[in-house]
Amino acid sequence: MTLACERETLKLALLAQAGLSDAERYPLPGDASTRRYERIIARDGRRFMLMDQPPAFESQPCDPAWSAEERHAQGWNAIARLSAGRIEAFVAVAEHLNTLGLSAPAIPVLDVANGLALIEDFGDDLFARVIEQGADEEPLYLAAIEAMVTLHEAGLPPSILKGSAGDWPMLVYDAVALQGGADLFVEWLPKYDNRVAFDDAAIAEWRTAWAPVVKAGAEGASVMAHRDYHAENLIWLSGRTGGARVGMIDFQDAVIAHPSWDLHSLLQDARRDVSSALEAKALDHYFALRPSVDRAAFMASYAGLAALNEARIIGIFARLIARDDKPRYAQFLPRMWAHLNRNLQQPALASVAAWFDKYVPVEVRQ
């Protein structure tokens, strides 16, 4: 039996368990992950999403006890402290978010061992889509800030989330993960663009230049970060109030991180333009809701970690194009270069900017 046939048999069993054997099924387009979704519409009109994440498709998630060396030996999920798509991670984070009054999907039926879950369907009103259809983006982004503030004001999450599908550790987005993400740039950009090449000396200088940013990010880790908080992962739930109007998905890789992480993910988005005026208004809203935060110190880390994240994402997109033959990600590179170039103008990032001036020609950075 092929893997596709095996997965189909397992999905049919899950749907039968839920009383949905005769439901209509509509596969959704895939993304950059190994996870797939189907919309399930029951005969009585009830709607669900079927999440399919084969556990064998991913390397091992990070054991909290592993050293930096062990993490590098185990692979990318361990380095970056990704969940490896584990259903128990999704469930534990979803349940934690819901206890805070935020909106994560309910999960009525699970097959943890086989990586399957039937989850609440939040509909199609992704922030990015409703804005494309003419909705005013400002109320959506300010609501996303309010949801984020709820999460940040809750402070450190438990070190172990007790989920109904199993416990899941809340790990820190630490120096190994931050530097590992940045290093995707020097690893993969030359494989995508032959105008650049980085020898051992260049890579050593790269890590030295980023060291203060990495240190600040690791030491400032103090809140749960969604880690992929942007307009393609937020769904407008107009019937709810406050931060609960923001339906969250794709949060299974949540970690304890610097509070700026989700902010710059939202406001310096890879996939859509966010105006500088809206970014400023959203930041003002964040600091108004968190008056005890030292804005100047926070914004120094915001710029540095945003730049690091943009370098990381450029590396990821280069990998998706060069290794995985997904050329559509090239369309996002100019936007990421624009974000990165703007952040590199900050005086605190002078060493990083000097590295780019030395090793990455201006014509590449656009």
Rank of each mutant, 00 (worst) to 15 (best):
T9P: 01
Q252N: 06
L171W: 00
V112R: 15
L15H: 08
R7G: 08
E153Y: 10
L267K: 12
A307I: 11
A113P: 00
A218P: 00
D183T: 07
H285R: 15
E132V: 12
P259Q: 13
V360I: 13
S276F: 15
R328T: 03
D193H: 00
C5S: 05
L266P: 02
A330C: 05
P105A: 01
Y302N: 04
Q60C: 04
Y192G: 03
P334H: 12
V293Q: 03
M336Q: 09
W168G: 00
A297K: 13
V109G: 05
R47H: 10
D124T: 09
D22H: 12
R129Q: 05
D324Y: 04
H285L: 15
A350L: 08
I203M: 11
T208V: 10
P212H: 09
V274L: 05
Q252K: 01
A89R: 00
K215F: 03
E88F: 00
G166W: 01
D294Y: 07
A201M: 06
S301L: 06
I40P: 14
L289R: 15
S265W: 00
L266I: 13
S238C: 10
R323T: 15
C5N: 09
Q179L: 14
G163I: 02
L12T: 14
R43E: 07
L349R: 15
T208Y: 03
L10V: 05
W261R: 15
A348V: 12
M49L: 15
H230R: 09
H285S: 15
P27K: 07
E279G: 09
E38T: 15
Q74Y: 00
N341C: 07
M299T: 10
I249F: 13
W168I: 10
E95N: 02
N341D: 13
M248A: 04
G243K: 11
M51V: 06
A277F: 15
L110E: 14
M148E: 07
A56I: 08
P158S: 06
Q346N: 09
L161E: 02
H339N: 08
D22Y: 11
W66T: 02
L100Q: 04
P259N: 12
V109I: 12
M49R: 04
P157N: 09
D273P: 03
L289F: 12
D253E: 02
R272F: 03
G45V: 14
Q331R: 11
R71N: 04
L308I: 14
A56L: 10
L142G: 07
D253N: 06
Q346E: 14
L28M: 11
R46Q: 14
H258M: 10
A204Q: 14
T34V: 14
D31N: 07
V360A: 13
A147G: 11
R36H: 13
A92T: 03
A296V: 12
A89L: 02
A307K: 07
A218K: 12
I87A: 03
E120Q: 11
S260A: 13
F48C: 08
H339Q: 04
D250V: 13
S301H: 09
P334R: 02
A89T: 01
F90R: 00
G243D: 10
Y359C: 11
H152W: 04
W236I: 04
A244S: 14
P108A: 13
P158G: 06
I314G: 00
F57R: 13
G181N: 04
E132H: 01
P259L: 08
